[in-house]
Design a protein around this nucleic acid. Structure first.
Lengths: 418, 418
DNA sequence: TGCGCTTTCGCAACAGCGTTGCTTAAGTGG
DNA sequence: CCACTTAAGCAACGCTGTTGCGAAAGCGCA
């Protein structure tokens, strides 16, 4: 009955305030990286009082999510004590079920993948088989990283670091209280969306949940699959519930394009579109600080916009869709032509939504990233009404898996708007 | 320094909680209409405790924004006391500056226009002249309705009701404390976005502000005009500041399409697109409970999406824009053809954003509303991927002016999501 | 008519949020 | 060596929604 917003009623209580502000501070800490941030800049960045930041920081330190990170040089007074995020305080699993493979990424709170796996997948075998295959890959990744039910703390294990080596510049008073190393707490299987920072909730090294990214239509709220093109056997399969039951973890289900968008938003914020060129054309829309899923999780159906009235017929029934034009060019190996068609479609989108930037991804883009970025940017600047140029870049191939993990982490972090 | 969110920092405080919850209750009261609503359903609708609703209601009654509205029949226990919105507790001015006329609507808290005016406007005369003309119309409308600096209370004056007669069904214990009838408080000229409900803020019958809707590009945050097509003399004109200085009232500036969308959202909520067919094609996007303006108030540039690659050249420089195709048909008098082109563009939009419904407006639509609604709905259902059909309807011709006033009122009311 | 039941609703006490006022700590710079 | 500056925390405060409980008010059955 409290402020934990159901869906229609969204009355706020004190807990909502605490959760929001803590998420804001965590978002800033995350953006600050291992160097950490001072309380003054946290206060500046959040609009809160320094004293409020102190109280929130104390709660975060008590929860093990933040730790002191030394002091910065003085600017004439007492040098500020820095605070940093403790990345190994929690992990999220990113799971990508694609048409031919399954990918898994174990991601820490800083957003870094500490373990990744990929394996072939027979998508046509249907939901239960895919759940089983995914669960095995997840368990292997978690076990390999030294986490999971066995209960070994993360920092005791040497992990195959994905990124570069961490700049170990913490000459600090490492007062990290080293919580009881005996067990790893697994959160409640039922998702508790905004109570992540309740005192005592979660534990160091715990798995916070699984974010699952799949292509095709689905319902985000219920976690049930829709009619995946070419795979009618998936329609109506309750993928989220099946994964949650199999793994004993909270699961968030979303389209692959949405997962990538959420992941990219954690890096840079703002409002933008992630455009995916794979089996079809799709887009993830991050607008005004939040992902836009639409009324029925159908937003981002970007490929079936008509670009050429009376053009060739598309599998969707219409004529001259961007998808049929673009994929025909890809099939010919004409990435330049595909990119120009894509550019027109993206320009339509950019004009309609006034996005800050555009990020391209998907297998076709990975095949020739420079071509796509160049051609799309070209069309965009030719079509832009004013002098403003929308930046275009390509996403890494891992954007979807990593973003899937971010679906879980986003519930705790509130990214600072840019 | 408090929770009144600037732009980047959005730390919440108690005041934000109060403001949000009060807005939620006011939104429900507004939706309930003159019949009023019981405390239990307000608690249900907000997710708050009945006791919290009681406290909030007491504040609203003290502020004059809500009043008792009798009792509902018992369901076996003590009959609930009803609460209703007091529409005459405040007014907002809606101002529409179009290319050939100025329109003004004085709107009460219930969203009803209690006075309207329209007059020719020489848009080419530039900003200052338009401001002066608009100010005169506003003053005339306010004086005619018995409000304004003279300070006559609204309920003492017979108003030219725009809608039907109000169903006077209030057999209640009218305990309305009748605040001092001597003066009408005019709010601070500097907008105070979310402190509208501070005890003692605003007064009964007061003007809360002016919402100004104009075509063409502008910056919502700064209130400065951009390059209006065909009227370069408007570029850079600080319309919001000029109006605020001339009128001594807070002013909100936005595109006409956005104003209409906000106004329509107040009626029915949800997420939808308002599509305007006038001098150009534009759209107002109400997504996920909030208007989407985009990074530079440029969202809704709906007309310059390319529908026909290598089609006829548009004034924007591209080829085959929806606008050039649609307006060519309108110029021929071929509303059916224009509507079908519009339908394709709307279908692109609906697929991309997964909206609940589409509302059509603008002069071309007013000329043949049934044709546009029918043809657009036809294209939409032909292109819809699933069985879901997006409802299409036409907006009244007053949608933009009324919505402009709603730009002001929205800061106080939080519409319940649907 | 009387009594039990249901529902409404407000008073009073409460826990928890960020804020304010003030004190103490820990550096820099003349 | 002593102002001066900046940082950080303790304590009190105002305010939020919440909880507990009792009074008020109508229904329905004996």
């Amino acid at each position: 009955m409290k402020g934990s917003g159901e869906e229609s009623g969204r009355g706020l209580g004190l807990d909502a305030v605490r959760s929001h502000n803590a998420g804001l501070v965590l978002g800033l800490l995350r953006a600050a990286g291992p160097a950490g941030a001072g309380r003054a800049e946290l206060a500046e960045g959040t609009g809160l009082t320094p004293q409020a930041v102190s109280k929130i920081s104390a709660r975060l330190r008590a929860a093990g999510l933040a730790a002191p990170a030394g002091r910065r040089a003085s600017t004439g007074g007492k040098p500020p004590g820095l605070l940093r995020l403790v990345p190994e305080a929690g992990y999220a699993v990113g799971l990508q079920l694609d048409r031919d493979e399954v990918r898994v990424a174990l991601v820490d709170l800083a957003g870094r993948a500490v373990a990744t796996r990929r394996a072939p997948l027979d998508f046509a075998a249907g939901g239960p088989a895919a759940v089983e295959a995914a669960a095995r890959e997840i368990e292997a990744a978690v076990a390999g990283a030294g986490l999971g039910p066995a209960g070994v703390r993360a920092q005791d294990v040497s992990l195959p670091a994905a990124g570069g080596p961490e700049p170990a510049a913490h000459p600090a008073t490492a007062t990290e209280p080293a919580p009881a190393p005996d067990s790893v707490q697994v959160p409640d299987p039922v998702p508790a969306p905004d109570s992540a920072l309740a005192p005592g909730g979660y534990g160091t090294g715990a798995l916070w949940g699984v974010g699952c990214a799949v292509p095709g239509p689905l319902d985000h709220r219920s976690g049930v699959m829709g009619r995946v093109t070419g795979h009618p056997e998936w329609e109506g399969f309750p993928l989220r519930a099946a994964l949650a039951a199999r793994l004993g973890l909270p699961v968030v289900l979303d389209k692959d394009t949405n997962a990538a968008a959420v992941g990219l938003a954690a890096e840079s914020g703002g409002s933008f579109a992630y455009v995916h060129v794979g089996t079809g054309l799709g887009a993830g829309l991050f607008l005004g600080g939040a992902l836009h899923r639409g009324a029925r999780t159908g937003a981002g159906e970007f490929g079936h916009q008509v670009l050429l009235l009376d053009g060739p017929r598309c599998r969707c029934g219409a004529r001259g869709c961007a998808e049929v034009l673009c994929l025909a060019a890809v099939a010919r190996g004409d990435h330049g032509g595909a990119a120009r068609v894509l550019g027109e479609a993206v320009a339509n989108l950019a004009a309609l939504l006034d996005v800050d930037r555009v990020v391209l991804g998907g297998r076709a883009v990975e095949a020739a990233p420079e071509t796509y970025v160049r051609e799309v940017a070209e069309v965009l600047s030719a079509r832009a009404p004013g002098t403003y140029r929308v930046p275009v870049r390509a996403a890494p191939a891992s954007a979807v898996v990593t973003g899937a993990a971010e679906l879980v982490l986003t519930e705790t972090f509130t990214p600072p708007r840019t």
